[in-house]
Simulated scan of single mutants.
Amino acid sequence: MMAEITAKALREAADLLGIHDQASLNEIRTHYHKQIKQWHPDVSKNEPAASHEMTIRLHAAYTLLADYCMNHTFSFRIEDLAKDLERNPIDYWMERFGDDPIWG
């Protein structure tokens, strides 16, 4: 069962993965892989039960953030694409997500 997508749940997931203010989907994936390499029960030096629990939590956090990011709609109209490509990526991000309680 997937966790409910709320601002608090997204912020907690980002915190668990070590994401502070902003991240692209690729950066989220990188943070997840870094944490999983540390906590996976097959390689972790932590107690197996704790490693297993953390692996489950990390996977849930990554899934929640990835679903959140992947369900935004993007326009592929030529006018919108041209306008988007002219903008600074940070300005675009702030216009699109700046007021969002997680990414803003």
Rank of each mutant, 00 (worst) to 15 (best):
L17T: 03
D84H: 08
G98N: 09
M2R: 14
E47D: 15
G98L: 10
H59I: 06
G18T: 05
E4C: 02
A23P: 11
R77S: 13
H40Y: 10
M94W: 06
P41I: 05
P89Q: 10
D100I: 03
N26V: 06
I5A: 06
K37Q: 11
G104C: 04
M1P: 10
D15Q: 14
T63Y: 07
P101R: 11
I19Y: 04
N26F: 09
Y92G: 02
V43W: 12
P89C: 05
E27D: 12
N46V: 09
V43N: 14
Y92S: 10
Y92A: 13
R57Q: 14
P41R: 11
P41V: 04
Y32D: 01
P41M: 06
P89A: 08
S75E: 08
A23E: 07
T6L: 11
A23Q: 09
P41T: 04
N88S: 13
H31R: 15
C69R: 10
L10A: 07
K83Y: 04
R11C: 05
Q35E: 14
E47Q: 13
A49P: 00
M2Y: 05
D91Y: 02
H72L: 00
H31Q: 12
L10F: 01
I19H: 05
R11L: 14
H59W: 03
S44M: 10
H59P: 00
A60V: 05
I78S: 13
A14Q: 09
R77V: 04
A49W: 03
W39N: 10
H20T: 13
H52K: 15
T73I: 04
E53S: 11
D99G: 08
H33D: 10
D91K: 14
K83R: 15
A14W: 02
F97M: 15
I56L: 14
R87H: 06
D15N: 14
I5T: 14
P41F: 04
N71M: 08
W39Y: 15
A50N: 11
A9E: 07
I5L: 13
W103D: 01
R11K: 15
L16C: 02
Q35A: 15
L16V: 01
T73S: 07
E79V: 08
I5K: 08
M70S: 13
E27W: 08
H72Q: 03
A49Q: 13
R96M: 13
K8L: 12
D99C: 03
G18K: 12
Q38H: 12
S44W: 04
L17G: 07
L10Y: 01
K34E: 10
C69Y: 01
D67L: 07
N26Q: 14
Y62R: 13
D42P: 01
E86W: 03
E47C: 09
R77C: 03
L25P: 00
L85R: 15
N71E: 09
